[in-house]
Simulated assay, not measured.
Amino acid sequence: MKAFFTAILLFSTSVCAAEEILPSWNDGAARDAIIDFVECSTKDGCTKYIEPEDRIAVFDNDGTLWSEQPVYFQLMFAIDRVKEMAKDHPEWKSEQPFQAVLENDIKALKSSGQEGLMKIIAVTHAGMSTDEFAEIVHNWIATAKHPQKNKLYKELVFQPMLELLQYLRENGFKTYIFSGGGIEFMRVFAEEVYGIPPEQVIGSSIVTKYELHDGVPVLIRQPKIDFIDDKEGKPISINKFLGKRPVAAFGNSDGDLQMLQWTTAGEGSRFGLIVHHTDSEREWAYDRESAIGQLDKAFTEAKAKGWTIVDMKQDWKSIFPEK
């Protein structure tokens, strides 16, 4: 009888332990694939075992760790900055893409494309020290709210992905962000929101210049793009900053395709995952035809190469953290 109760206790404990893994994920192929990869890659003797020093996982940010609609959140930050700065720039009333921002014309702003976006980023993110910029971002993240969701932008992170980041770290993985978003924009909140320290956040950057202001050394942000960490830029920056190929990559759009290709092409155990936005009620539904976070070529390749595709509507019990 004692052996019977012991068996029941052990069974119950194992069930509870299993349920504690990725609790915001529904049972299904996506959750199973993640757990199978982590368990085997960290179990000595398993055919897919990965040495601790090689357990590197890279994540996109926009659309992968937090939402990105109706426009990228850093662009929303830049839009707010344009409106604040407009009083000193009357010429913006008739100059695109600034005119579109001041008139709240999102359609015209989107039509300006990457060139327009980079112009706005360069103007609103430069002309100040790195410390001054960090303080501006910090204040914005702490107070600005999404116009549709009426939540702080930092509250629009994906609870299932927060659990995934923690699960990987608990199993010896080092987690990095490689994003097309601005590196110094993300570094302000990445540790607080994702548990990823600044030195493990890589993104697009603008040129900075070393200067002495009243004998004090400062880094001044220049209105010139230095590097775009998107598409083929992602594996290039991974190689540049890490010096080794990751074993797992997580993205959501065609901008992440090359990162996923390069990561999963390595030898040994590899894992690729695409977050597919399918939930129009709790978040947004978009993919191949979207101007923001387009998922077309990467979606096709994910199916062909067996990368895990997360269907947000089906695979996630909840989208955002509950207060």
Rank of each mutant, 00 (worst) to 15 (best):
I141N: 02
A100Y: 02
Y194D: 00
A108F: 00
I35A: 09
D226V: 07
F271A: 10
I196E: 00
G116R: 00
P246H: 07
S269V: 10
W307P: 01
L260K: 03
I206E: 05
P97T: 04
K43E: 12
I120H: 01
R245I: 13
Y49D: 09
G251N: 05
A302D: 02
T64V: 12
N171H: 14
E84R: 05
I220R: 05
I309M: 02
P23M: 08
T278D: 05
W92R: 03
E283C: 09
G63W: 00
K43C: 14
T278V: 05
L242N: 11
G255Y: 08
K303D: 00
G63T: 05
A122Y: 03
F133P: 01
A78S: 10
E51A: 15
Q222T: 14
R288F: 10
Q159A: 12
D214P: 11
F11C: 13
K48N: 13
F185W: 06
L117F: 15
T208A: 09
S67A: 13
A30I: 04
F189M: 06
H277D: 06
T175F: 01
E20T: 14
F5P: 08
V247T: 09
R245F: 08
W262P: 06
L22R: 06
I106V: 15
F37D: 07
A78P: 04
W66C: 03
D60Q: 11
V15L: 12
F77H: 07
Q166L: 13
I141H: 02
K145G: 12
S253V: 08
G203F: 01
D296P: 03
A108H: 03
T13P: 07
L156C: 13
L156G: 13
V207N: 07
K119S: 14
T130P: 00
M312P: 02
R31L: 10
F271L: 13
E199R: 02
K48V: 11
D226T: 07
E95V: 11
D279H: 05
M76A: 15
A122V: 08
V123K: 13
K303S: 05
I79F: 05
A248E: 10
E135M: 11
I56A: 05
L75R: 03
